[in-house]
Amino acid sequence: MIIVTTDAVPGKEIKEIKGFVRGSTVQTKHIGKDILAGLKTIVGGEIGEYTEMMDEARQKAIGRMVEDAKAKGANAIIGMRLQTSAVMQNAAEIIAYGTAALIEE
């Protein structure tokens, strides 16, 4: 599956647009790691636990978007975007979305 943030795939022709696709997940960390992350806010610096959590969430959301595109018969996703929002304290939703397309092989 080719995934691009642009409206076209360089060097490839779009044969058919299959439609909007998306994938999402809501992630939170284990309470023990959450406490450690909270302590890091006192001294400053990167909060590795949350960086890891958000990376896992992005990968899950993108994976689900790809499955949606495959189910529609696409071999590419164009105009892919990621969006995040806080849904409750210490929990974030990640949404991956784009346009499923069939491009020349």
Rank of each mutant, 00 (worst) to 15 (best):
Q27R: 15
I2C: 12
I31H: 14
D68Y: 02
M1P: 01
A96E: 01
D68F: 00
L39M: 13
H30G: 13
K29H: 10
R64M: 05
K40F: 03
G32C: 04
M88D: 15
I95N: 08
K15G: 08
S24I: 06
K18Y: 04
A100I: 05
K15Y: 06
N90A: 06
I35L: 11
M54C: 11
K12C: 07
A74R: 00
G19M: 06
I95C: 06
I103A: 02
R81A: 05
A96M: 02
E52K: 12
E67A: 07
M65S: 03
G44T: 10
M88E: 14
E56S: 12
Q27M: 15
T25F: 01
G79E: 12
H30Q: 15
A76P: 05
G73R: 13
I95G: 11
I3Y: 01
V26R: 07
R64W: 00
M65W: 00
L82C: 12
V4F: 05
R22I: 07
E104I: 06
G45H: 08
A86V: 11
A37P: 07
G32Q: 11
M80D: 03
G73C: 06
M65V: 03
K72I: 04
D34F: 03
T51A: 02
V43T: 08
T6R: 12
A76S: 05
V66C: 09
N75T: 02
N90F: 01
E49F: 04
M54T: 13
V9S: 02
I14H: 00
L36Y: 12
G11H: 03
R64Q: 07
Q27H: 13
K18V: 08
I78A: 03
I77P: 01
A61F: 01
M65F: 10
D55H: 15
M1K: 07
M1S: 13
R22W: 08
T6K: 10
A86Y: 06
E56H: 08
M1Q: 10
K15D: 05
L36G: 09
A91R: 05
G45R: 07
Y50T: 07
E56A: 12
R58H: 06
M88T: 15
I77W: 00
A37S: 06
E49L: 12
D55M: 15
I31D: 13
F20T: 10
A37G: 13
D7T: 08
I14D: 05
E16T: 03
N90S: 12
L82M: 10
T84D: 11
Q59I: 12
Q83K: 04
A92V: 11
I62H: 07
T41H: 05
A61L: 01
K15F: 03
G44Y: 11
A76W: 00
G73D: 03
E67N: 11
A37F: 01
I77L: 09
G98V: 07
T99C: 09
I35S: 14
E13C: 01
A76H: 01
D7L: 13
K33M: 09
G38V: 01
Q83Y: 06
V87H: 08
A57T: 06
E104T: 09
A92E: 15
T25L: 04
Q89C: 14
A74S: 07
A74H: 02
A101I: 02
E46H: 15
K60D: 10
L36V: 11
